[in-house]
Design a protein around this nucleic acid. Sequence first.
DNA 1: CGTAATTTTGAATCAAATCAAGAAGGGTGG
DNA 2: CCACCCTTCTTGATTTGATTCAAAATTACG
Lengths: 248, 248
Amino acid sequence: MAHDDLPHGTLTCGECPIRHRAVCARCEPTELGELERIKYYRSFEAGQTVIWAGDQMDFVASVVSGIATLTQTMEDGRTQMVGLLLPSDFVGRPGRARAAYNVIATTDILMCCFRRKPFEDMMERTPHLAQRLLQMTLDELDAAREWMLLLGRKTAREKIASLLSIIARRDASVNMMPSIGRMSFDLPLTREAMADYLGLTLETVSRQISALKREGVIELAGKRHVTVPDMDRLMFEAGDDSDGGLVG
Amino acid sequence: MAHDDLPHGTLTCGECPIRHRAVCARCEPTELGELERIKYYRSFEAGQTVIWAGDQMDFVASVVSGIATLTQTMEDGRTQMVGLLLPSDFVGRPGRARAAYNVIATTDILMCCFRRKPFEDMMERTPHLAQRLLQMTLDELDAAREWMLLLGRKTAREKIASLLSIIARRDASVNMMPSIGRMSFDLPLTREAMADYLGLTLETVSRQISALKREGVIELAGKRHVTVPDMDRLMFEAGDDSDGGLVG
DNA sequence: CGTAATTTTGAATCAAATCAAGAAGGGTGG
DNA sequence: CCACCCTTCTTGATTTGATTCAAAATTACG
């Protein structure tokens, strides 16, 4: 069973691991108390579908732990990932009754859910909530636009290198490490999920990972553990501008 | 010269054509007065660059009339459009001092600019502004995710059909017409801009437009005026789900 | 009316997809 | 503990859709 260390319903906002990054980050103690009253926890196992696109959605939520994906599907089954949800990320849209995307748990996942109507009401009254959600949404929009450049203009090799460097840097930021020089991390996605992220087939993903390994850009231990001997080299392969980019 | 009908600096919020859709849509008369004091108008001619990515940006703005694009560029010149700015759309990000993308005027354009610092200060105090900007940003994020599916998984033919149906439907909504049956509209983009939108080359854009014309999905009068005899047929070619999709 | 910019079309090439086996893990039950 | 199965991943051969390179046609414009 997942998350026995985070017993459902007994976690208070004060002890919440994502307290300072989630939609509630700017809330004051009184406001937290109000959230506390409308919140409840739900957990899903790896592989489970949290919500289907088009389904009634009577809650919004924060990812507390684990990873989920947002995907869009065409009738013939082609699927494109359009969001990767990490701890502290927000799911759902205030004011929208139906889910726009499929949400699928990639790992075991714990979500802090708020009943939608009370949450919407509270947003009207609580600028701190709306302000934080705005900031998070603007960040997501920036990420989506970076992703659009990747999907529209990068080669398969550049796409893989970009994804690896995104994961490496995210991992470093969580662990408060600098993302330079030699780095190691686990891939949280299967080859197929990577393909859906990058707009490729899983065979192409596999081939390009093999190529980067063969050329020493990365090292693999098992299928999932990656070591990058030189981040600069990886960033170069990703085709990104060398300068650090934007600040949040 | 452009926009002699909208003399700079003399337009009041009360007579503004985008008043009800822009970031100020929810503002009350007092709040409008406050915006009025920090706003100024700037116009750009078709083809002009409004801002370069990385440039200092000491204002945010609403597009009053005309069309602009948001683009990202790689060092070797590959470019991807990541936003299409229409009247009432918002440019810039509160809290960010440097532009993240190139903004280029596609047609002659008029923008209602607000000095950034006063605007940010006002946002802190004015929930109506933050709420409206949140709503607009969530809409943009949805559009970006639809766009990601297009870039990652659609064929060239589907991409073109999708773009045409997006433009057709936008045009219809501006003119308060239903977007069914027979429709006519002008393309606001060159073949190259369409290619940058769709992640294709301009040759492929041209070929696919020719193919759709040959097969009677569209009719062309000149290079830019398009007639769609049957919107359902076009939607089918776009590969989108037949159901209408989401509401804003 | 001529010149530049944009668009169309053609032919050749190429990167990624598709089709098709195998190999490598990872977990289960005998 | 090992044999087996199922999923995930890798690799190979071939096809294909889109790009690239090249030239002609159309349109816009001074």
